[in-house]
Design a binder for these strands. Structure first.
Lengths: 324, 324
DNA sequence: TTGTAAGCGTTATCAA
DNA sequence: TTGATAACGCTTACAA
C-alpha cells in the first residue's frame, strides 16, 4: 500500500502538495496536480480511511440501528438509505440488535466506538437514564417512527389519522367488533411503545359503537381463535404488523376459516411478501422513502453543526386488499 | 471525550502506563492499574477506535458482502454471523450490493477503504481481471456458497447429491417432466454461476428418462405457464430459489392451478416465509450456521497469518412439503 | 504555488 | 515497574 509520503518522494514534491492534488484543492498548479494524480493511479494509491479519519475527526459513516434484521419492514429502509448515503459520499454501518432492548445499548456502544458521524434509529428504551445516555454519546441522532423526546429530532407518521381511516373501512364493511393485535404492548413501562399506543388511542377515538378487544399478550394467536369462534359478532383484526396478521391468517386457515368470510383482518407495513398471500391482505404502508429522506436531511444538518431539532410527521397510506 | 494523555496527567503517570492499565498488560503494578482504571471509569473514558486502528494496523471489523438485502436467504446468515463475531470481539460491516455484478467492485472498494480485517462473500464476478483484483486487495477472503477459484478458501454445499435426492423424490411421485427454473443462468459468461450450473449438472446426471426443460430467461413466469398448460406430461418445477417457486405458485394460482394436483414444485433456501404459504412448499435447506462457522474459522486463521486455503463441502437437507 | 511541521489518539519499543 | 518517544498515514495551519 503506497502512502502520500512515498508519492511525494516519487513526484519530487511535499506531502502537502500530494494532498492538494489528490483532494482537488484549488491552491495547486494544474500540471503538477495531473502529474501527481497520474502517479497515484499508476501505483494504485488508495487513501487510508483510518488515518484520514484520525486527522479530520470524522468518518463519513452513518449508523442505522435495526431492531430485527429478520423483519422485512427494514429491508426497504436499509436499501434506500444505503443508496442515498452513497450518493452523498457517506457509507452505511448497520447496527444489528437481537430484539432485546438491552442490546440497543450494546449497539450504541459499538457505533460510538466506531465513531460514526451520526445515527438513525428507532428508540426502543425508555426512562431518564436512556435520555442521559443518548445525550452523553455526543453523536447526532435522529429518531425514526417512534417518538421518544422532543430534545431529539423525529421523523414519523401521523398514526391516529390512518387508523381512523382503517376503522372507517372496517365499519363500512359491516364489522361489529374490532380486535387490536399488538403483542409488544405487553412491554409497557419497560419499552418505548409510543407508536403502538398512538395507534391504540386512534382506535379508541374512532371506534364508535363497535366492540373493542386488545390482544397484547404473547399467546395472541390462541386468544384470537377463541375470540372469533366464541363471539357472535362479526370480528375484524387490526394488527400492528403484517407479521402478526399473517400468523393469524395461517393459524385460522388450519381451522378452515378465511377472510373476509369468517373474519376480517388488516395488517401494517405492506411487506413485499404479501404478494404471495391469498387472499391479499389489506394493510397500511409507511412512506419509507420520504421518511428516510427527511431523517437523512435532518441528520446531515446536525452533523454540519446546524442544531435544528424538528419534527416531521408524514402520512401513511391505506392499501386495500381482500381481507375485509 | 477524555484521552489517554489526559488520563495520564490525572494519574500522574505516563501514557504508556495508562495504556498498560487499560489493556490489562502484565508489566504493571496492580495498584496503579486499579487506580488508573478507576479514574478512566469515572471520566467515562472510551478507547478511540480510529486511533487504535491506525496504531495497530487492524480494525477488528469483518465485512460480509450481501448480494441483495431483500433476499430472505441472507437474514439468517447476517444474524448468525453477527452473533458469532461479537463473541469473538469483532464487529460486522455489511457491504450491500444493488444486485448488479459491477456493484460488487464498488462494495469491495468501500470495504478496502474501511480497512476491514477480512471479508466473507459470494463471488459473483468472473474472469482473470476479477481474480487479479481480489488478490491485489490484500485482504483475507473467504468464498461462500459459490466456488470461484482454488486460490481462495471456499465453504459451500454438495450440490449434485442433494439435487439427486430431490430428483429421486420427483420421480417417485410419478412426474415425467422436470423443469429446472434458474433465470440467473442467462448471465452465463458474465457472472459466476458455478453453483447454479452444478445444480443443473446434478439434474442432468440423475434425470433418467424424464423429460427436461431449463428455464433461464427473464420471462420464466410466462414460459412456465405455457409449459405446464401445453404439456401432456406430469410436470414438476425445480427452482433455484424459493422466491422463484413462490412467484410461479402465485401466478399459477391465478389460473386455478395448485400443486401437487396440477403440477409439482420444489424450491431452494427454506426461507422463513414459507410457513405462511399453503400448500407448504417442498424445499432444500442450506446448513447456514455450519457454513458460517466454517467460513469464519477459516477467515480468522487467515487473518492470523495462517495461510490455509481449504475447501469445506457441507450437506444440504431436503425439506418435505406438500407440493410434489 | 509550494513546503514545513504540528497535530489526531493510540500502541509499542526502548531505555531507565 | 515505569517513562520518553517514535511510529501509524493523513490533514492543515502557517510560512516561504
Amino acid at each position: 500500500m503506497i502512502t502520500v509520503k512515498e508519492l511525494a518522494k516519487l513526484c519530487n514534491c511535499s506531502v502537502a502538495t500530494v494532498n492538494r492534488a489528490l483532494n482537488d484543492r484549488p491552491d495547486i498548479n494544474n500540471q503538477t496536480k495531473e502529474r501527481i494524480k497520474q502517479v497515484a493511479k499508476e501505483h494504485g494509491y488508495r487513501p487510508h480511511f483510518i488515518a484520514r479519519s484520525l486527522a479530520t475527526g470524522n468518518t463519513n459513516i452513518i449508523g442505522l440501528i435495526v431492531l430485527d434484521i429478520k423483519n422485512p419492514f427494514f429491508e426497504h429502509i436499509i436499501d434506500y438509505l444505503n443508496q442515498r448515503l452513497l450518493e452523498r459520499g457517506y457509507s452505511l454501518h448497520l447496527g444489528i440488535m437481537d430484539g432485546s432492548p438491552e442490546s440497543e445499548y450494546r449497539v450504541f456502544e459499538q457505533l460510538a466506538y466506531m465513531k460514526v458521524d451520526g445515527i438513525i434509529h428507532v428508540p426502543l428504551n425508555v426512562g431518564d437514564a436512556y435520555k442521559t445516555y443518548l445525550k452523553q454519546l455526543h453523536i447526532p441522532l435522529v429518531h425514526l417512527c417512534n417518538w421518544y423526546d422532543d430534545e431529539f429530532p423525529f421523523v414519523g407518521v401521523e398514526e391516529s389519522q390512518i387508523i381512523a381511516e382503517a376503522v372507517q373501512h372496517i365499519q363500512q364493511a359491516g364489522y361489529t367488533e374490532l380486535i387490536y393485535v399488538s403483542p409488544p404492548l405487553r412491554y409497557k413501562g419497560s419499552r418505548n411503545l409510543y407508536t403502538l399506543e398512538e395507534r391504540l388511542k386512534g382506535v379508541q377515538d374512532s371506534i364508535g359503537d363497535m366492540k373493542l378487544h386488545v390482544l397484547d399478550t404473547k399467546d395472541y394467536l390462541q386468544k384470537s381463535i377463541e375470540l372469533v369462534s366464541q363471539s357472535h359478532e362479526r370480528s375484524c383484526f387490526l394488527c400492528s404488523s403484517d407479521i402478526f396478521a399473517l400468523d393469524i391468517m395461517t393459524q385460522m386457515r388450519a381451522l378452515d376459516m378465511t377472510p373476509p368470510k369468517d373474519y376480517g383482518i388488516i395488517g401494517f407495513d405492506n411487506i413485499t411478501f404479501l404478494k404471495h398471500i391469498s387472499p391479499r391482505l389489506t394493510t397500511i404502508a409507511y412512506p419509507v422513502e420520504e421518511l428516510i429522506d427527511h431523517a437523512l436531511e435532518e441528520l446531515l444538518l446536525m452533523i454540519q453543526g446546524k442544531q435544528c431539532i424538528s419534527k416531521h410527521i408524514l402520512k401513511a397510506h391505506f392499501i386495500p386488499g381482500e381481507t375485509i
